[in-house]
């Protein structure tokens, strides 16, 4: 376990020493600030605009960070051969994957906390006090983090067998598909026979990011049911576990040429 945490903390260290990360966070915070301006233009819905735009910025920039760090997690180490000196130590291959995953998730959580502070500051600036509905924002942010966990797991999965560029394409494509997961099920349920079954299976296996997106309802100050929080948490964690297990499975059999 100490090996896994060592690898995780090194991954975290790698991320925080990367200048790109700060640029992205700064940009996201800038967007939150800009949302205040946009909110002022569109009368009466400042709060709605700030929350919508702010949460969208957090989720998109976090996504970019997750994908761009995630895809390099394994393939870069193979390419630069830094793995050789890791795997010639008493580190099992699955431990390496787990450590990398943990490190990136930790990075993303810390990022999200930073960006969340920005959003809360903007919301506070508007109302000069916090209100009960602000707590729903926390749920939305929590769901966004769950999305990051899932996309990280998927990026890791792709990274374990394909090149960074291809992994990025795969991960991004899955994100887009996952955003329309609900519609995909709609399509699937319109097909019949064997193809219908395959389509339905595919529609359920694809990551469902739509289920984890409550931004617009939170922007309308609507609460999120506790049971939904529970099931979504279960879903995201189980799905990520499956993807990470897949990454480990592939990586265990890889020849590091």
């Amino acid at each position: 376990m100490t090996r896994v945490t060592s690898i995780a903390s090194n991954t975290f260290r790698e991320a925080v020493r990367d200048r790109v990360l700060y640029n992205l966070i700064a940009f996201a915070l800038l967007m939150v600030a800009a949302s205040l301006l946009v909110g002022q233009i569109s009368m009466n819905i400042e709060r709605n605009v700030v929350i919508n735009l702010g949460l969208t910025a957090v989720s998109l920039f976090g996504l970019v960070i997750a994908i761009f760090i995630g895809i390099g997690l394994v393939s870069k180490e193979i390419e630069k051969k830094t793995l050789y000196t890791i795997l010639s130590r008493p580190v099992r291959r699955w431990e390496f994957i787990l450590g990398k995953f943990g490190g990136l998730v930790a990075t993303l959580v810390v990022n999200t906390v930073f960006m969340a502070v920005g959003i809360f500051a903007a919301v506070f600036y508007l109302a000069h006090h916090f209100q009960r509905a602000d707590a729903y924002l926390l749920v939305a942010l929590y769901f966004i983090i769950l999305q990051f966990v899932m996309i990280t797991a998927l990026a890791l999965l792709f990274s374990s067998f394909s090149s960074p560029l291809l992994s990025a394409v795969f991960a991004f494509a899955l994100f887009v598909i996952g955003t329309f997961a609900q519609d995909l099920r709609g399509f699937a349920s319109l097909t019949h026979g064997v193809i219908g079954w395959i389509a339905i299976a595919a529609a359920y296996v694809v990551p469902n990011f739509a289920a984890l997106n409550v931004i617009s309802s939170v922007a309308h100050d609507q609460p999120v049911a506790a049971s939904l929080v529970l099931y979504n948490t279960l879903y995201a964690l189980l799905y990520s576990a499956a993807a990470v297990a897949g990454a480990m499975l592939i990586f265990e059999r890889r020849n590091l040429k």
Partner: peptide, 17 residues
């Protein structure tokens, strides 16, 4: 693995460390 050491050819290491 705990009892061996390995120097790869043309080694490269994490350059941010």
């Amino acid at each position: 693995k705990a009892q061996i050491g390995f120097l790869p050819e043309q080694p490269y290491f994490y350059d941010y460390l």
